[in-house]
């Protein structure tokens, strides 16, 4: 297994990412959907209703859970539940935004690289290797720090870093598909290259790419939380879970909910997305279905 395959995950490795064998696949998918669904629901509700205004600092500082502040307040007297709900929105936006950006750029670049031959291919793949050598977080820090810290900066940064990973995966998959006889057959029967891409290449690489994008979604959520923790994410009053954790760190003993709740929500969302990816892998990939 080369480093490239290691990144994609060889078939057996994908096996290992999945839940234990005797747990049925549909159970994995269901649990994943429920976990993600809860977060999405909270985010949607937060668009229409939150218990308090996010910038409302009228509560006493660091109140324990109770009424009227169900989960208590933070060090500025803001309602924790409100912040958590808005945080769900930001986490989902960060994940979705980065995946869309990274997916579009990555797949396009990967397709181009996949069709490149010899020296051009060498150059492109060396470039991708180097881009990947900067991990997402460093690249993101670079972009986020030179622009003003904002959610958009974070998304752009994470998306760009992700696009290198997606591009490398796409390149390998495209090369693999292009080596098949049915491509030669399609070409000799007069199909144009654009149609070959649309009808043969994309459908064949899509299952693996989409599952990888789902896993990247989880990584993007983690990356956004880390950036916010370092103060490079969405600025106040946007309550990012990462920044909530950073702010609550000093008062962990007076108000432990502030340190526990955002972290738990991050874990729930990321696990949920990973489980959905695992479950979806089997639904999306006909070759895996047959093998079972």
């Amino acid at each position: 297994m080369s480093a490239e395959q290691a990144l994609i995950g060889a078939p057996d490795e994908q096996e290992a990412q999945a839940a234990p064998r005797h747990v049925s696949r549909s159970v994995t998918l269901t649990i994943g959907c429920v976990l993600v669904g809860v977060i999405v629901l909270v985010a949607v509700v937060s668009l229409f209703w939150v218990p308090f205004a996010p910038e409302d600092t009228s509560g006493r500082r660091l109140m324990p859970p109770g009424l009227p502040h169900l989960l208590g307040t933070d060090k500025l007297g803001r309602d924790l539940l409100t912040q958590l709900m808005i945080g769900a929105r930001i986490a989902l936006a960060a994940g979705a935004g980065s995946v869309v950006l990274g997916g579009v750029i990555g797949v396009a670049a990967g397709l181009a690289a996949g069709f490149a031959t010899r020296w051009l291919d060498d150059v492109v793949s060396a470039l991708l290797d180097i881009l990947i050598a900067f991990p997402t977080l460093l690249l993101a820090m670079l972009v986020a720090a030179t622009r003003a810290a904002s959610l958009t900066s974070a998304i752009v940064a994470i998306g760009l870093a992700m696009s290198a990973i997606v591009a490398r995966l796409t390149r390998v998959l495209v090369k693999r598909v292009l080596a098949h006889d049915f491509i030669t057959a399609a070409r000799t029967s007069g199909t144009s290259w654009p149609r070959v891409v649309l009808e043969h290449v994309l459908p064949n690489i899509w299952p693996t790419v989409s599952v990888n994008l789902a896993l990247q979604f989880g990584l993007a959520v983690l990356a956004e939380a880390s950036l916010s923790y370092l103060g490079l994410g969405a600025p106040p009053p946007n309550a990012s879970w990462g920044r909530m954790l950073q702010e609550a760190q000093a008062s962990v003993f007076i108000a432990p909910v502030g340190v526990i709740a955002p972290g738990v929500l991050i874990v729930v969302l990321v696990i949920g997305v990973n489980l959905v990816a695992d479950g979806f892998r089997d639904v999306a990939d006909p070759t895996r279905r047959r093998r079972r």
């Binding site: 939380a225 880390s226 954790l245 972290g263 874990v267 990321v270 990973n274």
Partner: peptide, 15 residues
Amino acid sequence: SQLGIAVPVFWVGML
């Protein structure tokens, strides 16, 4: 291990 890959590393440090 599935849980471990979903946990933000800085949160583990905080805990």
